[in-house]
């Protein structure tokens, strides 16, 4: 009798361990994006009673960017299902970061469509989702929500980390002359690739229209979109983030947004500020 109980207990423990292991099992997901391209994402199954989290990386980066990995790992360890896509940026099944000098045919719209594809894919699997975006990925999320605000995707929470807009951005190569050059090119019908100054890229080879699609997303446009999002949005800023107007977080805060500013933290929350980042995430997703 006792032996049967022990055997049964052992079997249960084995099954539980198997389930736990499978919940942590990460797999790469390839998703046709509808433009003859495929997008790749890392999907990690977590607890079913917890919302699934879509994490979007910054411009030209991949899902393997350190800040994204830290956030993802933390959530996965906390039992959350995570989906970390790599935005294709016009590269089929892109796995690596894209150089500034590559021909950038992707646009803000194509990026938003990719996010929409991934949100739809995730929504099919999970009723409750949380969206997290970092840097330009945060701006893409804002743009996505702005475009699809009428669609009832009902994300439980939207977490915006160090959002970085493209136009009028301080400490960037995106100058007004560059913007003017792009606009003239479009106006003159010169739609082929050309080199522009863009964020940290001095030689960002892009189609003028594609270039301008990002530039349109300035601080103002982003703020407006943020204000229009009906779902709860939590924002985290590093006080030391020099990629944005450092007065912007406070402006948002004053505008009633849920904004948390971490002292001394930079755009990536490196070093000890990693804990501040994770604490923010934990507090936000669990609240």
């Amino acid at each position: 009798m006792i032996e049967n109980i022990i055997m049964t207990s052992r079997l249960i423990i084995f099954i539980l361990l198997l389930c736990f292991a499978s919940s942590l099992f990460a797999k790469e997901v390839s998703l046709p994006l509808g433009n003859s391209l495929n997008g790749l994402a890392e999907y990690t199954q977590g607890d079913k009673d917890k919302p699934a989290v879509l994490i979007v990386h910054g411009i030209l980066q991949t899902r393997n960017f350190s800040t994204i990995q830290i956030i993802g790992n933390f959530l996965e360890e906390s039992g959350y299902t995570t989906l970390r896509p790599t935005i294709s940026l016009g590269i089929d099944s892109r796995k690596k970061s894209l150089a500034c000098e590559a021909i950038h045919t992707h646009t803000m719209a194509s990026d938003i469509e990719e996010i929409a594809h991934w949100v739809q894919w995730l929504k099919k699997k999970h009723q409750s989702i949380i969206l997290i975006g970092h840097s330009a990925g945060a701006t893409l999320l804002v743009a996505y929500l702005d475009k699809y605000e009428n669609i009832q995707i009902t994300p439980e929470k939207i977490i915006i980390i160090s959002p970085a807009y493209f136009g009028n951005r301080p400490s960037s190569n995106t100058s007004s002359s560059e913007i003017e050059k792009a606009r003239k090119a479009v106006a003159s019908g010169q739609l082929g690739p050309a080199s522009f100054g863009f964020i940290y890229c001095e030689n960002y080879v892009s189609l003028p229209e594609a270039y301008l699609s990002y530039i349109e997303w300035s601080q103002q446009r982003t703020t407006e979109s943020l204000m229009n999002i009906s779902n709860p949005v939590s924002l985290l800023f590093g006080a030391g983030d020099k990629r944005i107007d450092q007065a912007w977080p406070e402006k948002l805060k004053k505008m009633g947004m849920d904004v948390q500013i971490t002292d001394d933290a930079n755009h990536f929350f490196n070093g000890s500020h990693e804990f501040d980042l994770l604490d923010f995430i934990e507090n936000t997703v669990d609240s």
Partner: peptide
Amino acid sequence: GECRQQILNPSFYSYWREQRMMN
């Protein structure tokens, strides 16, 4: 990845070949 990009969309291949491929 950019080779895949060019094969799938060779619209700007000449530009890419000249400006990008070898460098």
